[in-house]
Design a binder for these strands. Structure first.
Lengths: 344, 344
DNA sequence: TTGTAAGCGTTATCAC
DNA sequence: GTGATAACGCTTACAA
């Protein structure tokens, strides 16, 4: 036997006013006579009235809700971005609807549609690679959105992100400056992931610019897991010509790669250099710390939220926003022994 | 000049049927004549009709939405739980509304209320410690909820979680069995966090049972960050009587603690043993691996979701559900040198 | 400053 | 199988 929920009309009745006045008391308190307002608020408290969001959304055509479809929460870097996203939205009175696609574009499209049907006022997507079907839906329903992590090279879509190619160039140049000449790369899956495509491209182009090749056999694509990183490193260590520097598509792969080196009795970086992208703050505190190109994930979440919030409230914002990345040099990279030998 | 969104009535008009039939075509397709159904579906596709969730929610009094208020996404363990939660809900056709309270109970209450106003069909909370105000709200609106991570000792509230006290007992006994007698603990903030209170209690009780005291000076409470872990370890290493075993309230604190040991030239575990709770899979791959009591976070998320989904669809489920934790022994714990000396 | 009443876009209960 | 039509709970002109 559950009692019916209290509704706005009940509050109105008990306060001896109309529903319109109660509604105003809630959303435009300054347009209500102070005494009336106070009376209404007392009744609201006494009755324990809780506004009905769906009804309000139906009437106002606004849900104060933002949807985000992220790759996964199992990677700290995306979790960090999402955390900042949620926090910024919350402070602005918005609620986050969250979905994870686990690197499957079809799933992403499905979830995005679901969020749109739930009525989100805006949408946050990760990267620029998306199903056509999703683009069409977004276009059709005219929902404000922002792409994150990546930059849209066409310049047509609103985004706040990083230049992944540039990041690739940075590590490659750094390692070449240390004297490395034989490279291998443990890349993430690049097919539907422009961020990792660009990282590889950056590395490859920077190497090529100094006459160093990175043949396909030296680029091993793996899903994002430490185990996959280990496997890839095994493959690399099996190759006849040994690489002196291994660049990993992200921190997770790098951790696995280092673990495999250790398992084979190799010293990092004395015997082989391992670098990566993203971050590994925690692990770096206690291990041959990883040199990485660091992407400030939390800042990204905050800026992405602010971008969307600004547009929702009619403010002007730069269509494209690029966030700087930072090369953090730690103990995991070094000159290869052979180079040191030459110099010495 | 934005064109008005397509609504169900438009689909009805173009298909030459009533809105009732279109509605049925959407939710009870088998109750519609196949030809009619097909015609409607064609029109839906052609018009690009997207159902209006708020209107549907208003009419059905169901949003197919679940709210979760978690501590933070910046700790991998909660991110993992949330990931599994989202995934399980998604598979059942539900959407996750997410909020983070960052260990502030007032914020938790505020966000929970917001989610309830948005119309979530159910609520997932972390732990058993909550503001009275929140309990009253939950009671008043009669919303199905489930507590996670912790177990409710009163047995009155639905929950799926772990026995944190037991976890504390496990590490303590393990370390005592190794020969340790002088302990210190780097605890998390316990005031509004029964999980960490219970971990401390378990350790303390297990030690007491074997006549070992853990005086307040040996329990250092810190917020959950590696930096705080380092600071706490500094304090501990400054104490006149040196502890041989340091138990950390979670993995994040433990990482910091180990880092500080290394910084001071101490070998872990030869010079001092450092253990923890939760997990540290990645770091463990490349560092003096942490012995921990492992809480299967992803499983928890899945079970919590299933619990709630079951109740929402009227199925019976156990009111309380305890998930097993596992002591994972790795290289970070060991007999203290003095003990080895005695034995040797 | 407050009240009246017409939506908002669905679903659901009846008839037919 | 299908169609009218009354909810669902709130907002917002427009009046008073």
């Amino acid at each position: 036997m559950k009692k019916k929920p209290v509704k706005l009309a009940d509050v109105a009745r008990f306060s001896g006013v109309s529903t319109a006045t109660v509604s105003r008391a809630l959303s435009l308190p300054h347009k209500v006579k102070p005494e009336t307002l106070e009376r209404i608020q007392r009744v609201i408290k006494k009755l324990g009235y809780v506004p009905h969001g769906a009804a309000r959304a139906l009437a106002t055509r606004r849900t104060h809700t933002i949807g985000a479809v992220i790759p996964t929460l199992d990677n700290a870097i995306f979790a960090n971005t999402t955390h900042a996203l949620q926090k910024t939205l919350d402070e602005a009175g918005y609620t986050l609807l969250l979905g994870c696609h686990e690197f499957n574009p079809k799933v992403e499209a499905r979830i995005a549609r679901k969020l749109i049907e739930r009525g989100v006022d805006g949408l946050v997507l990760f990267g620029t690679d998306h199903e056509n079907e999703l683009w069409e839906l977004i276009e059709r329903v005219q929902i404000p959105y922002v792409l994150t992590w990546a930059l849209d090279r066409t310049g047509r879509r609103p985004c706040v992100g990083f230049d992944s190619r540039e990041a690739g160039v940075r590590v490659a140049q750094y390692l070449m400056d240390l004297g490395h000449r034989r490279f291998a790369m443990i890349a993430g899956i690049t097919a539907t992931n422009e961020r990792h495509r660009e990282r590889v491209r950056g590395v490859r182009e920077a190497l090529a610019a100094r006459g160093i090749a990175l043949p396909p056999s030296r680029i091993i694509e793996k899903p994002f897991s430490p185990t996959a990183g280990r496997e890839a490193m095994q493959e690399i260590l099996r190759q006849r010509v040994r690489s002196t520097a291994v660049i990993c598509g992200n921190d997770v792969l790098a951790i696995g790669a280092i673990a495999e080196c250790h398992a084979q009795g190799l010293n990092v970086p004395a015997d082989i250099s391992v670098t990566g992208f993203d971050d590994m703050e925690f692990a770096s505190m206690v291990t041959p710390a990883l040199t990485t190109v660091h992407f400030p994930a939390a800042e990204l979440g905050q800026y992405a939220a602010e971008h969307l919030l600004a547009r929702l409230s009619g403010r002007k914002v730069p269509h494209q926003q690029q966030l700087p990345v930072e090369l953090i040099v730690r103990a995991s990279s070094a000159a290869p022994r052979e180079v040191l030998a030459e110099v010495g």
